[in-house]
Design a protein around this nucleic acid. Structure first.
Length: 674
DNA sequence: CATCGAGTAAACAGTC
DNA sequence: CGACTGTTTACTCGAT
């Protein structure tokens, strides 16, 4: 019936046609989340720093990264020890059983699996201190360097823009610069505080040569110091070709040798590795490839020692020689209980972050849409590749070699980029196809929770399938049921992207609701509401994890155990998410309960459910396991087979806060697999 | 190349 | 009558 061929042509139509006006058009119709139009993305953002104008890298974020770095280094140091310092650049080596002085159990663990406590136990205080100190020093250096770069960049930017005849009013630039400077100032202040903190934490002396030695050989750098800046700038990723168009935004630092070189390597999976590898193939990790700006670190020097005085912030004690300096450090900047406690807290924070779902690949994706709002449109826009140069800043690269979402409790980076986005979604800007959520991407719930703000404001198409989004919307409600209109509202409320082209996606939503068995319509007093049949939902999800050789490959390539674990966990989390998410589902009986689900991922065909699932009744009888949608007046009776019956109803009806469930889910990864 | 899942478009029927 | 809602069909695309 349809106009044949039309599809092709029509496909591009929506975007080009309504792309413009539809935003306000019908979006409101759905009661859409307030402030619709405001998001017009792009425009209002300050691209200069590669972050949201409001969300420019805050000092807090910086601190966070620093802390993370320190911990990463510590972990790696541990790792190094475990592997007997044997592995110059060989990831696998870490598995070597030659654990020296380190308990086997530890040696076999991924550094990421170590708890702060463990780390502390394993590392002797001096080692710990040494590591922290070392890291601290590097941070200081890099920060200084970064400030310089930033300023250079700013100048460059100004020049560029002026040359390019950028109509940007001087005022704006001026303000920008001013704002930037203020920010820097603020950062410096915070940095100072941080330093003091670390100081208190007892970053005592150590022989640089000693600490840096092993660290240098570490295969995978945590966040390479030099990359920190990149993160801020949203430095571009290698594989981002067409970005030039946006470059002038100041995101690129192509002029900076340091960063430039680090991007020569291949993208994908383990960008971090490439980041930390110098042209000559040597890992750069902590060896500061710092340029002239900062003093060279020689075996006999100390990052915090220079010109005969202690460079510790706020401390300018004069020291005759290094020895004296070290002594000074030991006495003046020692460790006390309080700082130790702080350190622990920091470690835990970092650890928490590490546990968070990671992003499989294709880190670029930032708020590209902000610069190219149209890219997010449904039509396959050829130039969509021109994301902003956002990217895979090293900060996103964890030692595990995978890219982790930047989001974190500590770092309000949300707006920076949509982490969970698999390469699939934004990428090619292609049509909305290939949502990744259902695959091995991070769990949608956590992903959403973490990047809530981002999706809410950025006109970026979420990397989730309609089905998963709908489900999410439904599960987020206490009743686990929503009317169509409520679902619409959720979409518009949660995603700026869905504030336009409403006809299109609404149709898609309806289509999905009808099409997928997992969505069950229940007649309610107030009309019909939709619920989710978790069983069905799980059923329909192919155990991608298992099957996808690519994924596996990716995971492995990146890899450290940690990476693997993380990825795996993320995947597991995603699959089990539903259960966790819905209190009601937690019961063992129900749907194969999460744990079981994991097998899927592992390779086992998903069957647990099959028992009854296979025979799943036609969609008409709403088997709303989904949650006992007791709510509906309609007795969920239909429930046949599912023996899980018992546990089903019991669970907290909705009472148990709904949204919070996410937390559960996020925690999940932690346990399993251990 | 076939198949499958997903997204998009649209026709159509029922309800409000 | 028109907007919504829900169902269904057709087609394209990308991945496997």
């Amino acid at each position: 019936m349809m106009v044949e061929s039309a599809s092709e042509t029509i496909r591009s139509a929506p975007s080009s046609q309504n792309g413009v006006g539809s935003l306000s058009g019908q979006a409101d119709g759905s009661g859409g989340g307030g402030a619709t139009g405001t998001t017009a993305s792009g425009t209002g953002r300050d691209v200069t720093t590669g972050t949201d104008s409001n969300g420019e890298m805050s000092p807090a974020e910086l601190l966070h990264f620093q802390q993370q770095q320190a911990l990463q280094v510590a972990r790696q140091f541990l790792l190094q020890q475990a592997s007997g310092l044997s592995s110059p650049g060989n990831n696998d080596s870490k598995q070597s059983a030659s654990a020296v002085q380190v308990p086997v159990s530890v040696a076999m663990m991924s550094p990421q699996m170590l708890t702060p406590q463990q780390m502390q136990q394993i590392l002797s205080p001096p080692q710990l201190q040494a590591l922290l100190q070392q890291q601290q020093a590097l941070m200081l250096q890099q920060l200084q360097e970064y400030y310089k770069k930033q300023q250079e960049q700013l100048h460059l930017q100004l020049l560029t823009q002026q040359q390019a005849g950028k109509p940007q009013p001087k005022e704006a630039l001026g303000n920008k610069q001013l704002a930037f400077q203020q920010q820097l100032l603020q950062m410096q202040q915070l940095q100072q505080q941080h330093l003091l903190n670390l100081q208190r934490q007892g970053l005592v002396s150590l022989q640089p040569s000693q600490a840096s030695g092993p660290l240098q050989t570490l295969p995978q750098a945590a966040v390479c110091p030099t990359d920190l800046p990149q993160l801020w700038k949203g430095e571009g990723a290698p594989g981002q070709p067409a970005e030039d168009s946006v470059k002038q935004e100041g995101l690129d630092l192509t002029g900076t040798a340091a960063t430039a070189t680090s991007f020569a390597a291949p993208p994908k999976v383990s960008p971090s590795l490439s980041h930390h590898t110098l042209p000559n193939g040597q890992p750069t990790v902590l060896t500061s490839r710092r340029d002239s700006s900062s003093h060279e670190e020689t075996p006999g020097s100390h990052p915090l020692y220079g010109h005969g005085e202690c460079k510790w912030p706020g401390c300018e004690t004069l020291c005759e020689d290094l020895g004296q300096f070290i002594k000074h450090l030991n006495t003046e900047h020692a460790l006390d209980d309080r700082s130790t406690a702080q350190c622990r807290v920091q470690m835990q924070v970092v650890q928490q972050l590490e546990i968070q779902p990671l992003e499989p690949r294709d880190p670029h994706l930032g708020h590209w849409s902000q610069y190219h709002p149209h890219c997010s449109q449904l039509n396959p826009v050829p130039d969509s590749s021109s994301f902003s140069k956002v990217t895979v800043s090293a900060a996103d690269s964890f030692p595990d070699g995978l890219v982790h979402p930047p989001t974190s409790a500590a770092a309000p980076v949300t707006p920076l980029r949509p982490p969970g986005l698999g390469s699939a979604s934004l990428h090619g800007g292609g049509p909305a196809r290939r949502r990744s959520s259902d695959k091995f991407c991070s769990p949608i719930s956590s992903e959403l929770a973490q990047n809530h703000e981002f999706y809410k404001n950025a006109d970026v198409r979420p990397p989730f399938t309609y089905a998963s989004l709908i489900r999410q919307a439904i599960l987020e409600t206490p009743d686990r049921q929503l009317t169509l209109n409520e679902i619409y509202n959720w979409f518009t409320r949660m995603f700026a992207y869905f504030r336009r082209n409403t006809a299109t996606w609404k149709n898609a939503v309806r289509h999905n609701l009808s099409l997928h068995k997992c969505f069950v319509r229940v007649e309610n007093v107030k009309g019909a509401v939709w619920t989710v049949d978790e069983r069905e939902y799980q059923k329909r999800r192919p155990p991608k994890m298992t099957g996808s050789p690519t994924l596996v490959k990716n995971m492995i390539s990146g890899l450290s155990y940690g990476a693997l674990n993380a990825s795996y966990q993320a995947a597991l989390a995603e699959s089990s998410f539903p259960l966790l998410n819905s209190p009601g589902m937690l019961n063992p009986g129900s749907t194969s309960s999460l744990l079981p689900l994991s097998h899927d991922d592992v390779g086992a065909p998903l069957e647990p459910l099959s028992s009854n699932g296979s025979s799943s009744p036609p969609r008409l009888s709403p088997p709303q396991y989904s949650h006992q949608v007791q709510v509906k007046e309609e007795p969920a009776e239909a429930e046949e087979d599912r023996q899980p019956g018992p546990s089903l109803g019991a669970p907290n009806p909705s009472a148990s806060g709904p949204p919070e469930d996410r937390d559960l889910e996020e925690e999940l990864p932690g346990e399993e697999l251990s």
